[in-house]
């Protein structure tokens, strides 16, 4: 009886002890999420960051995707192409909210094969640059292109698996020691 009770206690103890770290983890996550424990360092200086994510080159036109990855809203004030003040359209707004995106369309007579530099200047004078080493037309999306990508996928992802399947009868015949070796070898390769 005594032993049973202690065994019962032991079981509860184990459950509780396994739960405590989990509860603590949730607590920590909660505190971090609510910003209770850590006060994020603040500054009165404006800090701005814009990522020029993508530049699509169309005939006589650049289409640029901008991401505001900084802590504040950012107002795009000027755009320079090859260091000259240029301009264009920006949508949905020239004020990009935090973590928001904007699409910039710039009419520009770019020259094929030559480098191109795009500079964004914000209302607070922050400057962000992206260089294209050699300007070429961005191919438009087509089903043929999609087909190509599917083919690549088939070549590198599906065909090797089928080739591997061919080994199955051979693998069935080998000893479990060798089988384990091959399995761990494969796992190692995958990790590699």
């Amino acid at each position: 009886m005594k032993r049973a009770i202690s065994k019962e206690n032991h079981k509860w103890l184990r459950i509780i002890s396994s739960l405590i770290p989990l509860i603590l983890l949730f607590l920590v996550v909660y505190l971090i999420a609510t910003g209770f424990a850590i006060q994020a360092p603040t500054t009165t200086l404006p800090i701005e960051r814009i990522n020029i994510e993508r530049i699509v080159l169309n005939p006589e036109e650049l289409v640029v995707t901008l991401l505001n990855s900084g802590p504040n809203d950012v107002e795009v004030a000027q755009v320079l192409v090859n260091d000259a003040i240029w301009g264009g359209f920006i949508e949905p707004s020239n004020v990009i909210p935090r973590l928001g995106r904007a699409i910039l369309t710039i009419p520009y007579p770019w020259v094929e094969g030559e480098p191109l530099t795009l500079t964004i200047i914000t209302s607070n004078g922050f400057k962000f640059k992206k260089e294209i080493e050699a300007a070429i037309l961005t191919p438009p999306f087509t089903f043929e292109q999609a087909y190509t990508y599917i083919l690549i996928g088939v070549y590198v992802g599906i065909i090797p698996v089928f080739l591997g399947e061919g080994w199955f009868p051979f693998l069935r015949g080998i000893s479990s020691r060798w089988f384990r070796f091959l399995l761990s070898f494969t796992a190692g390769m995958l990790i590699f």
Partner: peptide, 10 residues
């Protein structure tokens, strides 16, 4: 040179 285009919300 294209003088000062600047921006407009689209």
């Amino acid at each position: 040179s294209v003088p000062a285009h600047g921006f407009h919300p689209l």
